[in-house]
């Protein structure tokens, strides 16, 4: 059980968090690991609270949900407030600093990355914010090699390869720039 890693991607409906969860789980499987992805969402097709969970392990995954997250991606203040308590002490917190105007108030390794702003300004489309986040999470966790996550993203969006490649890279690079944050 020790190598079980629990990730929770949280934010608002329409941010593509479930898609990000699916891609990350798919990549983990392609990297030879075991993975389970699940989600919860409100009745709204867009808006409302949304979360996706990914469990990654080298062994069997019995319980498919997060109990204490190793990583929390927060892409809205509401989600941050709701889920910060479920993050392991000293766990990884990835905050979209362009959407959350708040200093983290928990014991965590914090990465403040303006995910949505980077998607908008550097890729040109807010819709790829989830892919920017995936790039960052891949760089931080090193659970999945970069080329495998790239392949999983392309597999999901075969018609927008260049756009998504750029988004992934920006997320990846943002982590190295953010060492001190």
């Amino acid at each position: 059980m020790s190598n079980r890693v629990e990730l929770r991607f949280s934010g608002t409906g329409g941010q593509g968090l479930i898609t990000a969860g699916i891609i990350f789980a798919e990549a983990a499987i392609n990297a030879g690991k075991n993975a389970v992805q699940s989600q919860s969402y409100g009745p709204e097709a867009r808006g409302g609270a949304s979360k996706a969970e990914v469990i990654i392990s080298d062994g069997e995954i019995d319980y498919p949900k997060v109990t204490k997250a190793d990583l929390l991606l927060a892409m809205s203040e509401e989600a941050y407030n709701k889920y910060k308590g479920d993050l392991k002490k000293g766990g990884i917190l990835v905050m979209d600093s362009s959407l959350i105007n708040k200093e983290p108030d928990i014991d965590a390794k914090v990465y403040k990355i303006p995910i949505t702003k980077l998607a908008q300004e550097e890729v040109g489309k807010t819709i790829v914010a989830n892919i920017v986040a995936l790039g960052a999470i891949t760089a931080i966790t090193k659970l999945v090699p970069k080329e495998i996550i790239e392949e999983a993203v392309f597999n999901r969006f075969p018609k927008a390869k260049e756009l998504n490649k750029k988004a992934l890279n920006i997320g990846f690079e943002a982590v190295s720039r953010c060492k001190e944050c």
């Binding site: 699916i22 789980a25 499987i29 075991n34 993975a35 389970v36 992805q37 699940s38 989600q39 995954i61 498919p64 949900k65």
Partner: peptide, 9 residues
Amino acid sequence: EVIGHMREK
């Protein structure tokens, strides 16, 4: 709902 909606290897 857990089994129906979750994704697994």
